[in-house]
Design a protein around this nucleic acid. Structure first.
Lengths: 127, 127
DNA sequence: AATCAACATAGACAGACCGTCTGTCTTTGC
DNA sequence: GCAAAGACAGACGGTCTGTCTATGTTGATT
């Protein structure tokens, strides 16, 4: 399950799989390209093949047109990327990431209250 | 200031600049390679040149051996990467990043208390 | 059964990227 | 003036990545 080396183009494929339920390669191509032709289809297949090799996508071959499902969730993906960042920049410590996010704009009041609740929910004993 | 397209090799250069005070290219090479030779020196210079072009590094030419300083802090860098992640995966929303980090292991009890304090410090009125 | 469309698969490709390396010029110190 | 060290320009080789072509395979239609 090699999330780290998922390409930008591959990620576009993944996102469609996350949003749709067991799409075929044609469904994915239709979601990613305005105009789908044979070579675009082949591109999608190639990206799917690589995603499968990286263990991020599974394939159901029962139907003529294979149906694809994610073996890695959007949350898994995010988690992995965040960890990679922490490893690279802060020797694995994730606290700097949290504080940076909390300090950045874009958190609504509602979000902040949700975060407080989340902290209390995850570690109630420390309340 | 084009942080997004900073390469892995370039980041290694940046990290030395973050840690040292106004290093020369030789200082940087020494920190990155066990054994420094002419071509390694040239590699470092090339990476510095590209970092300068991307606006991430500044150069003081007064001395014979130029001295380099960061125009982008480690925190800037992190912030940019986090934002890119949020944009790509969650349409710019950063709340999912925070919750994912809070849910992940690696936060000590001390860290958690610090986070609570940080929230209270940033938004005291909501206490 | 013959045909044809749709999909899967293999392979190659161009362009870009990136760290490396070579060579040349300039500056500094002795 | 000479040698050492640095700056700089340019090119390179390997790799990556999305695209494209070609071929094989399956399933449906007549």
């Amino acid at each position: 399950m090699n999330i780290e080396q998922v390409t930008d183009g591959e990620l576009s494929i993944l996102e469609v799989i996350w949003e749709q339920e067991a799409p075929t390669s044609r469904d994915i191509a239709a979601a990613n390209y305005k105009q789908v032709n044979d070579s675009k289809m082949a591109s999608v297949q190639k990206l799917l093949e690589r995603l499968e090799a990286k263990g991020c996508v599974g394939r159901d071959r029962r139907e003529r047109a294979h149906r694809f499902h994610a073996l890695v969730s959007r949350e898994d993906f995010l988690h992995d990327r965040l960890r990679a960042l922490a490893n690279r920049l802060y020797d694995g410590s994730i606290a700097p990431l949290v504080t940076t996010l909390l300090r950045s704009k874009g958190l609504s009041k509602k979000n902040r209250n949700q975060l407080r609740e989340l902290i209390d929910e995850l570690w109630p004993s420390e309340k």
